[in-house]
Simulated scan of single mutants.
Amino acid sequence: MSTTALAVVQGSYTMNVRAESWLGGTLLADSIPISDGGESRDRSLAVPEQISLTVPRRDGGFDWDPGTDPAHPLAAYGQMLRIDYGVDVGGQMEWINRGWFLITESSTDGDTVAVNCQGLLTLIDEASLIAPFQPSSTDTLGSVVRALVEPALTVGFDGTLVDRAVPLGMQWDSDRLGAVAEVLTAWGAAERVTEDGYLLIEPVSDAGSPVLSISDNSTTGTVVRWQGSTTRDGAFNCVVAQGEDSAGNQLQGVVYDGDGTSPYQYGGPFNPLPVPYPFQSSLLTTVAQCRTAAAAQMKLLRRQAFRRLGVTMVPHPGLVTGDIVSVTGAGLTNARCAIESLSLPYAPGEQTLTVRVL
């Protein structure tokens, strides 16, 4: 987003949404009329992105009811929508790309067509393995991810990840997306689909500077408040990652919650004894790998367990899950927070965020 658009979305503004439909690399429609809808993202889900759209059945002389036509722009036979959110900047629309989404269902009721879409990881989630998948002796973690995902999605890797060989004897039977998740857990990595439709594999991290400052004050109408509940059920203050070396010796790496702001901090009042979260993977063949995986798993688990805030604000079409924001409100001042989930309306309305205090 331009600096001008960033300033505009801090207050009231005029917006629009446009969508293109593509099938197998061919453009089917470049101006789908959207009368209502919205987008939700939750990075705790296997497929984080969900889209709902309302389209008039007839517009501009075109019938948007897909009926039984497998090549219709709104049919669910591989059609993908590229969605852009427009912000009026000085009388001209600046378009912010929200990404590519797979149409999963379209239904017509009277004069409107309801269209549901999901993120592109749906392609991997629904494609169960039809035979056991066994890596070869030359495979690495990266090549296994490519073999499981491509050509449905093109995979890119963050340059800071260090690839390594996969132990012999690994096998996955049916769950393709689960196999990818196991590889990434052992690697200390996480995946996300970029706005360009690529699957990016990168280290688990909450680093980065805030992309936006959110303040709970009377002029912006932004509301910031604590949300959720507190429980000891499933809580932990250390992660134990277990594997084995080539000789069959059992290995493990332990990482303790040493965050001074964490209510589960090891050695703190939560419990003076270790309360472990264990996991095991045959992909872990050294103690160093176990420790790296345990540290990454600690960060992933904290995304679900740590303190959260609910934010209601003017829609900001540049935000996605994982972004770092600075929050003032609910007793906090300029606190770094990560966006864990969000909803973005595709018509005038309010945006909601769930952010985790870092």
Rank of each mutant, 00 (worst) to 15 (best):
W95N: 10
G90M: 05
Q92P: 00
T112G: 00
D111A: 15
D84N: 12
L81R: 12
G86Y: 11
W95V: 13
L102F: 09
I124K: 02
L121R: 15
D84R: 13
M93K: 08
G86R: 13
L123T: 11
L121I: 06
N97M: 10
L121S: 05
E105M: 02
R98T: 14
G86P: 11
I103V: 15
Y85F: 15
G99H: 12
V113H: 03
V87C: 09
R98G: 04
T104C: 00
I83K: 08
T112A: 14
T122C: 01
L81M: 14
L120E: 13
W100M: 14
S106Q: 00
G99T: 07
D109A: 11
R82H: 14
S107D: 03
C117A: 15
T108A: 07
S107W: 00
G90Q: 03
N116K: 05
I124F: 02
C117R: 03
D88N: 15
T112E: 13
G86H: 10
L123N: 04
N116L: 01
T122M: 11
T108M: 01
V89Q: 06
G91Q: 01
V89I: 11
Q92L: 08
L123E: 15
G90R: 07
D125N: 13
S106H: 04
Y85D: 06
G91W: 00
G119Q: 07
V87A: 06
Y85R: 06
D88L: 15
I83E: 10
N97P: 09
L102M: 11
